[in-house]
Design a protein around this nucleic acid. Structure first.
Lengths: 342, 342
DNA sequence: CTGAAAGCGCTTACAG
DNA sequence: CTGAAAGCGCTTACAG
């Protein structure tokens, strides 16, 4: 027989230590308004009881009373990337200094993604950073902020409104990349995109739109058979580029919505005997560290600094603020980073 | 002036709709014991009030009363991988069907990792899956399970004890990989490991120990300068292998603790003009999908099926169980997967 | 210095 | 069919 699981409460500790629950709470939290903390002898008795029964504070009780969860979230579009990993790490370091926890919310496009919004709506967390391309309704963001959730949102369209907005200017940077290819004389330019990208709301499909826009400006018809939804799968990207190169009229350049797929494009070209950039120019989007490793190194678009400390600091500033802070615009501009592959 | 953020409560809704908070709760939860739900007219009034003020249930209140958080966690060692992403996705799908949420807890090795344990200890979540190599004290796992947390733990050493254990038998599989290289005649075998791996508790350092053990069994002295802590960084792995190949006596084979670093070893060899596997045999550990894409395809060690549905199903079975379930052992064996690179 | 008591927002057995 | 009331575990202003 497994005995029914029992979590001891502060009442159990109080009984055991012969004190009130108030004293238990004071000892455990180390808080006591302005007053002096309980004397050492009492403290010892309480701590002994805590150790004996293995007491752990109950989050639900504490957070109901304190009106805060001491937890922050990082929401990002799945799959994870070196950038989301890096941000998670920096958030954890800053949070740990304050005794807070961090949870990651990888959003997939399915109904399951919608379920994750509950974590913000129902106040499992006190604040969150939203990386670009999370499928979240902008109106909802403002509502969440108005209800007191601390929010730092990466978005190029949204205006701050009780939450902070980090501008990356991704559209300009992506267009620069395509311009770079056109300026080099390329006319048959393929695009490796996210599956379903052309059905996404405007801000999320910025990469595909940038591609189309620049081609159109230069009077280059965007051949539909050069747009392939393979950027989220390395095997698919590799296979797609091999297929492109076997065509009668292969493209001379590729823009990929992800650096990962761009790297596979480089390998596909190499394995096909096509020189990069001579036979096929390749540009990625995202600037992941791996792009520096390959030969030729990857031309891409993204932030230069692998660092989110300003944004993380701002989140905690917002969390610490006594009164709600007005929304602020921060810059973390994407740039065209020309290396060897294009 | 930003007005102080206010979240409406069920009392506000009740007042507005002219009903009791009990009725509000019944309408919102759709529950009513065995009894009939409130009539349509009442329901409408409540729902209108909910919409008007943008009411969202408060997690702390609900979970304190219900004694459950309706949230489960996935804990895994940072950085994320295709496997952790896949598991997160499968957990989210299964959780969404039940109206539960999923949070990811990427554990880094720092103090920040320790802070994440609070999420389990203080009952932010009802259950969790722990992927291998999370730096969590085994004793603590049993304590958490005894307090009613539903736990499915990937571990080759731990015995089930109120939680389920998934056995991968990673040691055997890793030794097979090294044996495979020795059998092919290799004697100078380098190892790309995790930084700090030789200071980890036994179960976590299984890869390094497997490498050393097999070499020793065959009387091959493991040269310390062939063990490099670069497996978690693609740029570092690439640079390290280039350096290895420039040595007077370069290794003829490489075992990497991660497939990612193994793939970079392959590129480093190619870029150095060394044939793989002819000049340098390369074996990874982990079996990520990318290993199928490269040329030559990657010989590695890992689970064959990119699927966690059995483990996810077990977690939810445990969550749904009326009485605590005894611990069970599940198998998800790692295997040596011989492809082209070794 | 310590404890009794109120109350955070919710759910639910129970009385009416 | 509906509502008053208790109580989940905690914290904290307040009285003693």
């Amino acid at each position: 027989m497994t005995e029914p699981p029992e979590r001891p409460t502060q009442r159990d500790i109080a009984r055991r230590a012969g004190v009130s629950t108030a004293t238990v709470s004071y000892v455990l939290s180390g808080r006591r308004g302005g007053a002096k903390p309980p004397p050492e002898e009492t403290r010892q008795r309480v701590m002994r009881a805590v150790a004996e029964v293995g007491y752990q504070v109950d989050h639900a009780g504490r957070s109901l009373r304190r009106r805060r969860s001491d937890l922050v979230a990082l929401m990002y579009p799945a799959p994870s990337s070196p950038w989301s990993d890096r941000l998670a790490e920096q958030m954890q370091e800053a949070a740990a200094e304050r005794g807070l926890g961090v949870v990651a919310l990888p959003m997939s496009d399915s109904a399951a993604g919608e379920a994750l919004l509950r974590v913000l709506r129902e106040r499992y967390v006190d604040g969150a950073v939203l990386l670009p391309d999370c499928p979240v309704d902008p109106d909802e963001i403002a509502v969440l902020a108005r209800q007191g959730l601390s929010l730092v949102v990466f978005d190029d369209d949204l205006d701050p409104d009780g939450f902070d907005v980090v501008r990356q200017d991704r559209g300009r940077a992506c267009r620069e990349a395509v311009e770079h290819l056109v300026a080099a004389g390329h006319r048959r330019i393929a695009y490796l995109g996210h599956p379903g990208e052309d059905r996404w709301r405007s801000a999320r499909s910025v990469k595909l739109r940038s591609y189309r826009q620049v081609l159109q400006q230069h009077g280059i018809g965007a051949a539909p058979d050069l747009v392939l939804p393979v950027a989220d799968s390395r095997p698919d990207a590799y296979a797609a580029v091999r297929e492109l190169l076997r065509r009668a009229e292969p493209p001379t350049a590729v823009v990929s919505a992800t650096d990962r797929a761009a790297i596979d494009a480089v390998w596909a070209a190499r394995d096909h005997g096509t020189a990069v950039p001579g036979g096929l120019a390749v540009t990625g989007i995202g600037n992941i560290p791996e792009g520096l490793v390959i030969k030729p190194s990857l031309t891409t678009v993204g932030a230069r600094e692998f660092d989110f400390s300003a944004q993380v600091a701002r989140l905690f500033e917002r969390l610490d603020a006594a009164a709600p802070l007005p929304g602020e615009v921060m810059a973390a501009r994407w740039e065209l980073i020309v290396r060897e592959s294009a």
